[in-house]
């Protein structure tokens, strides 16, 4: 029933859902809107009837006592029960599931995202699966925006700017931080949004369920035709906040792996350049 009543969210104009948990948020949004619609229609109908029935022309003498029945109390109890259900039955357990049922560490892809004015630095651990150290003294906006130490664990790390690739149907754990001001990492289709707060690293996880290719197929013929997933900054971060977007590509596992290989080759080229 939660699913079927929650499915009203399809008519609310939410973006196409492309993550494994997105339907939970959508259902919840649907449920809240049922309460809102019911209450609003109830209030609206009452208001219309009342202003007609008790117009001073129709009812020249007011009744000192007014409403004597207890229906309004029952309605208020109804609202309280409904809200308690939304809170205890849906929001708290869903939030708990979304935030604390951590994925198995062996299967999850870890990615660091470091926000800055006005770009998203995406940091992959490379073949060894371990992130290299970073040092702010090494930060160079041209060649090393996150100040990565290219020794030890960092030797094989991949860093891209505004290009995030992820495999479909696999769990992703993002470790989010910021170099300068507060940003917010949102991918509306994935139903994820998380503030990036300087001085903190905040982990969160999700599982994309639709490749970019399939998504682009789905939106064919709409106004966003040809425009796939993007990271959208959701927190005011300065004058170019409005265009602080990163491109997200969800690939099949093979394509994702070959993309990683391709990126790893660039590291070698970079080193050659330094030579």
């Amino acid at each position: 029933m939660i699913e079927s009543l929650g499915s009203i969210s399809k008519y609310l104009g939410l973006p196409i859902n492309s993550s494994s948990h997105g339907h939970m948020i959508d259902n919840m949004i649907g449920w809240v809107h049922w309460l809102m619609i019911l209450l609003f229609i109830g209030w609206g109908a009452y208001l219309i009837i009342t202003v007609i029935k008790f117009n001073s022309k129709n009812n020249p003498k007011a009744n000192y006592n007014g409403v004597q029945s207890h229906y309004s109390q029952y309605a208020e109890y109804g609202v309280i029960v409904f809200e308690a259900f939304l809170l205890i039955g849906l929001s708290i357990p869903l939030y708990s599931q979304l935030k604390t049922s951590l994925p198995n560490n062996n299967e999850v892809h870890h990615v660091r995202v470091i926000a800055q004015q006005f770009a998203w630095n995406i940091h992959y651990p490379g073949d060894d699966g371990k992130f290299g150290d970073t040092d702010i003294n090494l930060v160079d906006e041209e060649s090393n925006p996150i100040g990565l130490v290219r020794d030890g664990n960092g030797a094989d790390d991949i860093v891209t700017i505004n290009q995030m690739h992820l495999p479909v149907n696999q769990q992703v754990m993002i470790h989010l931080s910021s170099k300068d001001v507060i940003h917010s990492f949102g991918i509306p289709e994935m139903r994820i949004k998380q503030d990036a707060i300087p001085g903190m690293t905040i982990p969160f996880f999700f599982t994309p369920t639709m490749t970019t290719d399939d998504f682009l197929q789905k939106i064919n013929g709409t106004k966003r035709e040809g425009k796939g997933y993007e990271i959208a900054c959701a927190q005011l971060c300065g004058n170019s906040h409005y265009r602080m977007k990163g491109y997200v590509t969800i690939d099949t596992e093979e394509k994702y792996n070959s993309w990683l290989v391709e990126q790893a080759e660039y590291i070698e080229e970079e080193e050659d350049d330094d030579w």
Binding site: I25, M28, V32, L35, M36, F40, L90, K193
Partner: peptide
């Protein structure tokens, strides 16, 4: 005010707020 109050509900619950926050 009814609309204003009601639209506060999905924002005040943390789960739907993930999508609606800062929109």
């Amino acid at each position: 005010f009814g609309i204003g109050g009601l639209t506060g509900l999905p924002l005040g619950l943390s789960t739907p707020d993930i999508h609606l926050h800062d929109t």
